[in-house]
Design a protein around this nucleic acid. Structure first.
Length: 423
RNA sequence: GUGGGUGUAGCUCAGCUGGUAGAGCGCCGCGUUGUGGUCGCGGAUGCCGCGGGUUCAAGUCCCGUCACUCACCCCA
């Protein structure tokens, strides 16, 4: 048994899977980056009060899942459980909301929740997120959702679904909430569920137990009680989504665990992931910025789970990191050749070629084995004969063919063959 | 936080009713002169998760503990 282990529930990504993790993260961020969203790097911990006020005191995330600690200045800080509140804080603090609107940002990194770990649920989770702040144009909602969808599509994912609904606003939700509450009090519910209904009646709607679901058949739904403005907004969002070519499922019982969501709300789930099926989600938040001390700008955003998306790719058998890690592997024979090789390595790297060489005295056979395992399609072999003749041997590992190329020409030759291959 | 399952070589796992550890894969080496993958041969590696108990004897039974895992809950 090893002396030290990574903290409970914290996933690590090491080779070879780490390259797949990077590919997933990049694929999820790509659509937003190419839609003009700019990068924002945020603190991993913030003032605890930011999350309490922003995310909501009654949420499970804040009430029992935060890693909270006191620093040496006696300040209460918490590892961020989600990204949106921090983005809002930064926008307000750095006056980004005084510039052109909407402010469009993307971020990626770790978030922390002190939950019981299980497949796809981690205490340190990785997310890629975007926020579009300072606009309530329903086309913006559609854009955000479409960018998430495109990320999953880029990876080749197929067995996922987009659930969509509207949670109304400060105008219409309170009345609906009262209606739902009066409906719920008439049901046969156990104590924890009653408590939940008291804290947030909406949350009872997505209960998974059949005995609860059966009782919810006639429950009033938010989408049937939207005010005129929210109803119109939601219709427009759906219309723009259709224009964007995104397919969704109406999910009138969709509820999210964070209090700030209003109007458009969505979640992506993958069918092969078991209990932790949510691979991404998000929605509109109209009052969030005000609640953290900013102006009354509304926004919309999403958080996509990098860990779970990777699991989803693996569940679908997708090879998300098929590109070899190297273009060339150099095999020197003898000390003289090692000097030539080091020089060649520098030139190749400067030319943008991804290259490694056989270090250590392994002998030609061992070096060739290492070359094979490196996955590089080309191997450059240099021995005394080659040094004397000022050439190198370039071997195509797949074909098994080999040709002698002059030392002078070899960098250009290799670069050319790589360009051809990537076309 | 609440339940269930599992913990044996780097990995996947076998080890029947208790008698001092095995396979496949991987790794390293060899198959003579400067060439990988296939094949053949050889080799290294285990406090059998940890602690206690029962027993002449425990990987094997009992208790505890830790870790992992699945579900609830929650969510990415």
């Amino acid at each position: 048994m090893v002396e030290f282990q990574a903290p409970k529930g914290v996933p690590e990504y090491y080779p070879p899977r780490s390259s797949a993790f990077l590919s997933v993260r990049d694929a999820l961020a790509y659509p937003a980056r190419h839609a003009g969203y700019e990068y924002i790097e945020l603190p991993v911990f913030e003032d605890t009060a930011l999350f309490v006020r922003g995310v909501g005191e009654s949420t499970d995330v804040v009430s029992k899942e935060m890693y909270t600690f006191t620093d040496r200045g006696d300040r209460s800080l918490s590892l961020r459980p989600e990204g949106t509140a921090g983005v809002m804080r930064s926008i307000v603090e750095n006056r980004l909301d005084k510039g052109p609107l909407p402010v469009k940002l993307w971020y990626a990194g770790p978030f922390f929740r002190a939950e019981r770990p299980q497949h796809g649920r981690y205490r340190q989770l990785q997310q890629v997120g975007i926020e579009a702040v300072g606009g309530d144009d329903p086309a913006l909602d559609a854009e955000v959702i479409a960018l998430a969808d495109e990320g999953y599509r880029r990876l080749g994912l197929q067995k996922y679904r987009l659930d969509l609904t509207s949670l109304g606003c400060a105008q219409c939700r309170p009345a609906y909430r009262a209606l739902l509450t009066s409906f719920l009090v008439g049901l046969e519910l156990d104590e924890p569920t009653r408590a939940r209904a008291h804290v947030n009646p909406l949350r009872v709607l997505d209960d998974k137990r059949t005995e609860v679901i059966d009782q919810l058949v006639g429950a009033p739904l938010m989408v049937d009680h939207l005010c005129e403005a929210c109803g119109e907004h939601y219709n427009s969002v759906r219309s723009f989504l259709a224009d964007a070519g995104v397919r969704w499922t109406e999910a009138p019982r969709l509820v999210r665990g964070l209090d700030y969501y209003t109007r458009t709300t969505f979640e992506f789930t993958h069918e092969l992931l078991g209990a932790q099926s949510g691979i991404g989600g998000g929605g509109r938040y109209d009052g969030l910025m005000e609640s953290v001390g900013g102006g009354s700008l509304s926004g919309i955003g999403f958080g996509l789970g990098t860990d779970r998306t990777l699991l989803a790719c693996e569940a679908e058998g997708l090879d998300v990191a098929s590109r070899p890690r190297l273009d060339v592997f150099v095999v020197p024979i003898g000390n003289l050749a090692r000097h030539v090789s080091v020089g060649l390595l520098a030139e190749l790297r400067a030319a943008g070629v991804r290259v490694d060489m056989a270090y250590g005295e392994r002998g030609l056979k061992g070096s060739m084995k290492a070359a094979d395992k490196s996955g590089a399609p080309l191997v450059v072999i240099i021995g005394d004969d080659e040094v004397a003749a000022q050439v190198v041997q370039v071997k195509d590992m797949q074909q098994g063919t080999q040709q002698s190329i002059s030392r002078q020409m070899v960098v250009d030759e290799i670069r050319r063959s790589i360009v051809e291959e990537t076309q």
